[in-house]
């Protein structure tokens, strides 16, 4: 019982769109998918003509589809953008080195320049070395914080005006749920914005052109277009708590496919009570990166690694910031608490 495409009513439909419930054939799906991203880009005014844009490329499905679609749309609608790929090498043997191979192939397929920045050259530590010191408990904190900054540093080296990341609708909805579960109102308010503003120096504005694209459609787009992507889980196990939110979101989607959009819509429309304290953004007095504290998270984490006190940057230890800045040693008692835990 082949279903006909509800748009062209000529060809056989290949998928049912979760957002709208429409059944579309391959060509109509490609068109609708690309057009929607175009709409997102245009209505949110993500780019200006002549800008150079770095596409954060991990080799995974989202960034591969993002790179492909950006290239297609840039040509189709003459955005006049100069696109390039920007990758971060965390230094994870058996994971990132493989996925970077994918990115290198993408570079050739799409004929885009590629820049790879590595944790090792930026921080002097690979993730493999970090895990050796801190264990598998807080390693994702290090990786996340370092990656964020690494992308910015890479973007500055490449002299791009903007970075676009492959966050899709599922990711955004999942983050909304996570922040609700954590009661993190500041992030809850920030996480649904499609682009960060460029007020802060040393930070390149970011945007998420795939914010309204369902993961399901991204995967199918990559599959039908035969895009070359990499899909293994990071060997240093992912965030367990995030897993709960993800499972819940996927269950929601199977009950009512529009749920993902509904969650994003909710996140966009939460009204925060006046007088709730929001962190004030300043700059790190060591590296100049944005930070709500005297030192940015990356600098504190790095200091912890270099002093052999990996827990220095985990949790709230603002009181140590002055000591770190003046390069004073910590007391024995303090050191004892910040040493790696036995595991």
């Amino acid at each position: 019982m082949p279903v006909q495409c509800s748009s062209c009513s000529e060809k056989r439909a290949v998928l049912k769109r979760p957002k709208t419930g429409h059944s579309l054939c391959k060509e109509c799906f490609f068109w609708a998918f690309e057009e929607e991203i175009h709409q997102t880009i245009v209505s949110a005014k993500l780019f200006k003509t002549g800008e150079s844009v770095g596409i954060a490329a991990s080799g995974g499905k989202d960034s591969t589809v993002l790179a492909h679609v950006m290239k297609v749309l840039n040509e189709r609608y003459s955005y006049g953008l100069e696109l390039m790929l920007l990758s971060v090498d965390e230094g994870i043997t058996g994971y990132r080195d493989d996925s970077l191979e994918t990115v290198k192939r993408n570079q050739q397929q799409y004929e885009l320049p590629l820049k790879i920045v590595s944790y090792e050259e930026l921080y002097g530590w690979t993730m493999d070395a970090i895990v050796k010191q801190v264990g598998l408990k807080n390693n994702c904190t290090f990786c996340g914080v370092f990656r964020r900054q690494a992308l910015d540093r890479g973007a500055i080296m490449l002299k791009v005006d903007k970075i676009c990341t492959g966050h899709n609708a599922d990711d955004v909805a999942e983050t909304v749920l996570m922040n609700v579960l954590r009661g993190d109102i500041a992030r809850l308010r920030r996480c649904t914005t499609i682009s960060t503003d460029s007020e802060n120096e040393g930070v390149v504005p970011r945007c998420k052109p795939l914010k309204y694209a369902y993961e399901k459609e991204i995967v199918l787009y990559a599959y039908f277009k035969k895009l070359d992507y990499f899909s293994t889980e990071c060997i240093y196990s992912p965030n367990a708590y995030r897993g709960y939110a993800r499972t819940y979101l996927k269950d929601l989607e199977s009950v009512r496919p529009s749920s993902i959009m509904d969650v994003i819509h909710s996140g966009e429309n939460l009204s925060v009570r006046e007088g709730v304290k929001m962190p004030v953004q300043g700059t790190c007095s060591r590296c100049g990166y944005i930070s709500s504290q005297k030192l940015c998270k990356a600098c504190v984490l790095l200091e912890g690694l270099n002093r052999g006190l990996p827990k220095l940057g985990i949790g709230k230890h603002h009181r140590f910031h002055d000591k770190i800045l003046s390069q004073q040693p910590l007391t024995e008692e303090e050191e004892r608490k910040l040493k790696a835990v036995d595991f």
């Binding site: 609700v180 929601l252 749920s259 509904d262 969650v263 909710s266 996140g267 966009e268 009570r273």
Partner: peptide, 15 residues
Amino acid sequence: KLLTSISLGRGAQLA
């Protein structure tokens, strides 16, 4: 109820 409201798109009304 709060989480349900979020999932139903009632973010603006959930307070």
